[in-house]
Design a binder for these strands. Structure first.
Length: 525
RNA sequence: CGCGGGGUAGAGCAGCCUGGUAGCUCGUGUGGCUCAUAACCACAAGGUCGCAAGUUCAAAUCUUGCCCCCGCAACCA
């Protein structure tokens, strides 16, 4: 075996509470980790929070806290989310951790041959105490919208990292897939970006304009800029350089990132690693963003979805299910409460939940709950393994669901209830054996699907294997999943006369309009 | 001519590399079934595959031009 597996996720900037966009990193990584462990792999799994920088300092001041208190608070929210999501991480790193700070400074010293002093010139707002890009300055017509003050062109001293020095090596690594960027089109996108050249990046700021950060070694007047600080976490969390164990895990097998930060992870981070003499990560898995009802999430629009709210209302399985199947791993995905609820009720509850329920019910009814010999199904696993290997999780889920649909279809064709009837009437010579074989086959398929599902829906997998795992069916009254109707109409509540007793008035004559309007108003989401 | 992605059924998407019967999920309709959580199964309707030209026996697929949408253009998960 040799090297142990290591997966790292981008560390979110804790200037606020987690929103639904943050969860993709965690979830994708968690699915991968659970899958690897299932196959006997030993995995180290890092998550963490990025806690330095002006934005946090400013937000803290607004809230009347110190930056550290503010970071502590938000960090707690992320930890709560991770635990609610049952993310199986092994390490949680915070960039304000003293060990991280010391190690980041070590890395800075190591990179000194590639660091030089320069000056940064840009548009500056005194109120914000920060620079804005030329584009932003132009779009605001040179006036800061928050402070109504004109931007000033000022320049300040800071340090630069010679990313350009490593451009050729980085390009080669990406082209040859030594550092593989997934999905493929992101790789092309980044290579195209590189064609325009890789400028050196500013990696420090004067202390007077950025106080909340890690001091630059040997220069009191400067503080490390976020990327230098934050990117270091992927190795400092392993103990680099003082804890020798780091070498068992680096290079990372996978780093999970959002599309917006690909350029830092594919450009600056490799430059740092090359400067340190370390290997590059093997895979950069780049996921898209989640839109809400087709729109970008934004606080001003007020469409930010709180993942905790989703988990509270629908349960963890529903949450993990939707994100892993309906938010395609590669592209942007859309979330809307209605879509989410439909997917949960129709696919998880009806397709899978009902399959489990009916199968268990028949075994109870026809075989006194005793499961016969479970048939090992011979479904071709090649496509599933391939999808998992490529981390195309939505594809893998589709394959699992075709198995579930197949089992439902099989039951429909063999009609176990008819066999049971034949048994009662004595028309089938071997009715009981036949029943046992048929239901054993269905249970076999369910069990196989359950194992495939385990990395995605650990709770559901546990419950389902609990029902069939012991030779005797153990069926609880309320089933594997319960339906939820918050954002869509409950069909059992709507009667033929068009009146529902769920509080929503359905007016068939006047037009469907009123229904949808009431529904969405009612939810308050 | 900045770079990249996309335009395929009412919605969301796959197929394109490697040309050969246009497919999946949801929704809609009809029928079937009664083991099951108003579930499940089968069938059907619904497509000028953005537009135009070219290559070819054959184009959603390859080539060229054009139109439209969306990202990115160095620090937004």
């Amino acid at each position: 075996m040799g090297k142990k597996l290591y997966i790292a996720t981008a560390i979110p900037y804790v200037n606020g509470k987690p929103h639904i966009g943050h969860v993709l990193d965690f979830l994708l990584a968690d699915i991968w980790v659970r899958h690897q462990k299932q196959n006997g792999g030993e995995v180290r799994f890092q998550v963490g929070t990025d806690e330095h920088g002006n934005k946090i300092a400013a937000k803290a001041q607004e809230a009347g806290m110190t930056p550290q208190e503010f970071a502590d608070q938000n960090c707690r929210y992320f930890k709560e989310l991770l635990s609610a999501m049952k993310v199986n991480y092994t390490d949680f790193i915070r960039t304000t951790d003293p060990k991280h700070k010391a190690r980041a400074q070590y890395i800075w010293r190591q990179l000194k041959p590639y660091i030089y002093q320069g000056s940064y010139e840009g548009w500056y707002c005194e109120g914000c105490e920060g620079f804005v890009t030329d584009k932003e300055a132009a779009s605001n017509e040179m006036v800061c919208p928050d402070h109504k003050a004109k931007y000033q062109k000022i320049s300040e001293e800071n340090y630069y990292l010679k990313v350009s020095e490593f451009a050729d090596q980085i390009k080669e690594a990406i082209e040859s897939d030594r550092m593989k960027i997934l999905p493929e089109f992101r790789k092309k996108e980044f290579l195209a970006l590189m064609e325009k050249g890789m400028p050196d990046v500013s990696v420090s700021r004067p202390k007077k304009s950025l106080s909340w950060g890690i001091p630059v070694p040997d220069d009191d007047s400067q503080v490390m800029y976020v990327w230098m600080d934050a990117l270091s976490n992927y190795v400092t969390v392993l103990g680099y350089p003082d804890d020798q164990e780091w070498a068992d895990y680096w290079p990372a097998d996978v780093q999970v990132i959002g599309k917006d930060i690909l350029r830092f992870h594919a450009g600056i981070w490799p430059a740092m690693l090359l400067g340190m003499g370390l290997e590059l990560p093997k895979v950069l898995l780049t996921h898209g963003h989640i839109t809400v009802g087709g729109d970008k999430m934004s606080k001003t629009v007020g469409n930010v979805v709180d993942p905790m709210e989703v988990i509270d209302k629908y349960g963890l399985d529903a949450f993990r299910y939707y994100l892993s199947r309906h938010v395609t791993t590669n592209a942007d995905g859309d979330f809307s409460w209605e879509k989410f609820e439909n997917a949960y009720n129709n696919e998880l509850v009806n397709d899978l939940g009902n399959l489990v329920q009916r199968t268990a019910g028949m075994i109870n009814k026809y075989m006194s709950g005793v499961i016969g010999e479970i048939q090992q199904p011979e479904h071709d696993m090649y496509k599933f393994r391939e999808a998992m290997r490529e981390m195309n999780f939505s594809e893998a889920m589709d394959i699992i669901w075709s198995l579930i649909a197949g089992a439902n279809g099989f039951i429909e064709r063999v009609k176990p209830w008819k066999i049971a009837k034949a048994a009662a009437e004595g028309t089938d010579p071997e009715p009981q054996a036949h029943l046992e074989e048929v239901l054993g086959h269905v249970v076999g398929t369910i069990m196989q699907a359950t194992e495939m599902l385990r990395p995605f829906l650990p709770d559901a997998a546990e419950r389902i294997s609990g029902i069939f795992g012991e030779g005797v069916v153990k069926l609880s009254d309320d089933g594997v999943f319960q339906k939820v109707y918050i954002h869509t109409a409950d069909p059992s509540m709507v009667r033929a006369d068009g009146v529902s007793d769920g509080g929503v008035t359905v007016a068939p004559e006047v037009g469907g309009e009123s229904v949808t309007t009431e529904m969405s108003g009612d939810t308050g989401a």
